[in-house]
Amino acid sequence: MNDLMVANASSRQSAIAVNTIQQYLTFVLGREVFAINILNIKEIIEYGNVTEVPKMPGFIRGVINLRGAVVPVIDMAARFDKPTAEITRKTCIVIIEVAHEDSTQVVGVMVDAVNEVLDIEAGEIEPSPNFGANIRADFIEGMGKIAGKFVIILNVNKVLSVGEIAELAGSARSTSQL
């Protein structure tokens, strides 16, 4: 089962390289627009019923029940060290599959609103700039050009790196204890 999922995840990676046109989901965080390759996305659900987990860093909102599975919810804005927006009717949780070691982990990402699914040709994607994007450079997979504007395409495996988040969660615990 896990092998299969890993195989899927890796075949997606190769699919990105082969196909020239990829589909991306764009969403809003604060006033900025970001994009994620839709192959990583499982579903989008309404925000709600999040249970807080104590002693966690701010960007871990808590956990939700996704049809019997307990899924952590990450506040994407807080992950980029930006102020968390208020929860509105448009607030969503995007359920994303992230590769971790030999398996995949399902993670929910809280965003202010989702926009649309766009086709972006490989030629329309520029490499990420080294600085100036105001989020960590390794979070960015590339800059997609849409109607003359740039949209940041996120590298979900980096932004939602399970290992890194677990580490941050561990250190948050020890600082709160001292």
Binding site: V53, G62, V162, G163
Partner: peptide
């Protein structure tokens, strides 16, 4: 799960009748 494995004092999650997580 992996993300919370370092949390101390919490042994696991469970799902309540209402569907929320405890």
């Amino acid at each position: 799960g992996k993300m919370f494995e370092h949390v101390k004092g919490i042994g696991g999650f469970t799902i309540l009748g209402s569907g929320s997580v405890a």
